[in-house]
Amino acid sequence: MRRWYVIAAPYIWLLLFFLIPFFIVFKLSLSDMARAMPPYVPVFDMSGLANFFSQLDFENYTFLLSDPLYINAYTSSLKIAAVATMFTLLVGYPIAYGMARAPREWRPTLMMLVILPFWTSFLIRVYAWIGILKKEGLLNLFLMNYGIISEPLNIMNTTTAVYIGIVYSYLPFMILPLYSSLEKISPALNEAAEDLGSPPWRAFWQVTFPLSMPGVIAGCLLVFIPATGEFVIPDLLGGSETLMIGKTLWSEFFNNSDWPVSSAVAVVLLLALVVPIVVFQRMQQREREAV
C-alpha cells in the first residue's frame, strides 16, 4: 500500500501541475476571444455541456498558419536556438573536456565554478550583459581604450546579443552532461588508440568524441529546448529584428489580450519541442541499456 503512494506521488504532481494546466491552455486555444472577464468564450458550464463543446474549434490554429508572423517567429526561434546551441557546444566541450582531464582533486572546485553563476538571479545576469554590450558599455570602452576599434561595436539590441546571452546563460547546462559523460571515458582508451598508431587528435575523433555522444546530445537538448521558447534574453538583449516565439506569445497575451491565440501559440510550441524531447529520452534509454 505504502509503495503505491510513493509511485503515485510523481504522477499526481505531473497531473496537477502539468497535465491539468496543459488541458486548460489547450481548451483556451480552442475558444474565441471576447471582451469580457475572462477574455474568452465559452466559459466552462456544467448545464450546457453539448453547447460548450460545440463552441470549440480550431480557428486559432488556422489563424496561426494564415499569418506569416507566427510561422516566421517559429522558424526564427528554432534557428536562433539551433545556432546558439552549436556555439554553446563549441564553447562548452573544451571546458568539459578540461574538467574531466583535470587532476581528480580539482574537479569538485571546477564543478563549483561552473554552477556558481546560478547563485545570482538569471534576470540580473542578463541585465548585466546590457552594461557590457551597450554602445558605451564595458566591451566597447575596453576595445576603444586599447585602440583595437575606433567606432563602438553595435551589438546591443541585435540577434548577436541574443546569441551571446543564450550561450552565456545556458553554458552550465551544456557543460554538466558533457562532463559527466567525458569523465566516464577511461584515459586508457586514448592510450590504447595512440598505442595502435593513432595521433592524439585522431584518437579524439575516433574514440573520445563518439563515446561522449550521449553527453553531447543531452547538453544540446538541455540548451536547445529552453532556448527555443526563451523570452527574457531576446526581450532584454534583442532588438526589433529579433523575432522569437516567446516574445510573440508575450505580446499576444499581454498586449493584445488574445488568450485563445496565445494559447494556440503555446500548444504549437510545445508540440514542436516534443520531438526533440522524445529523441532525448530515446537516447537516454539507449545509454542505460548499453551499460
Binding site: S186, E191, A192, D195, V207, L211
Partner: peptide, 11 residues
C-alpha cells in the same frame, strides 16, 4: 604494441 591491464577495448 601493448595489451592493457584493463584491456581498454573501445566500447
Amino acid at each position: 604494441n601493448m595489451m592493457f591491464q584493463s584491456y581498454a577495448l573501445f566500447p
